[in-house]
Amino acid sequence: MTSSAVDPIRLARERRRIFLALFTALAIALHTIEFLLPSPTPWFRLGLANIFAVLALFLYDGRAAWSVNLIRIVVSSLFLGTFISPRFFLALSGGVLATAVMTAARGIAGERIGPVGVSVLGGVGHALGQFGCAWLVLVRHDGLWYLLPPFLLMAIIAGMINGFVADYLLTTLRQHPAFRAKNSESAVANNENAL
């Protein structure tokens, strides 16, 4: 019997929901701002919003990462007015592949992979997902492939930068009681949600 009136399982679940909502909102804000900032070319972006998916992945689990990313993509496209437009589907393809690769990598490698590695994979996944979408649906043109290597390089570098930022955030956040004992809380939360 715990001394506090709060059920730890419920507490964990609530915390998860609230923080994921927070992460999602911040991801949306970051994505929108990043999109609105001038950039040399429209395609080369840092993808800062992905940092939050990485955080969700490391602090909670794969499903958390999925929800952060998917909701972020849909809602920010509504804000930017690009919902159901080519841009949206490029972002969606990129986001889906990125998240899939990140969660799979974390699932397979577990503790052996860190936020930097995951983030780099996320960046690469995003780039490849976008290219795949562009190739299949938009422009079946050889010239497209010329863009891939520099794009990929940018994605790797951005992934690394984002990874370091995520790492910093993780070390800071993990010091907070809300995120301690992460493993038992998230396992319990998962079981609850699976019902």
Binding site: L70, I84, S85, P86, F88, F89, L92, V137, L138
Partner: peptide, 20 residues
């Protein structure tokens, strides 16, 4: 279900994409 909805949206809108 949510995944299916996303996929459905995706497919349906490919039609719109082509027109661009």
């Amino acid at each position: 279900v949510s995944l299916l909805i996303v996929i459905l949206l995706f497919c349906v809108s490919i039609v719109f994409l082509r027109e661009e």
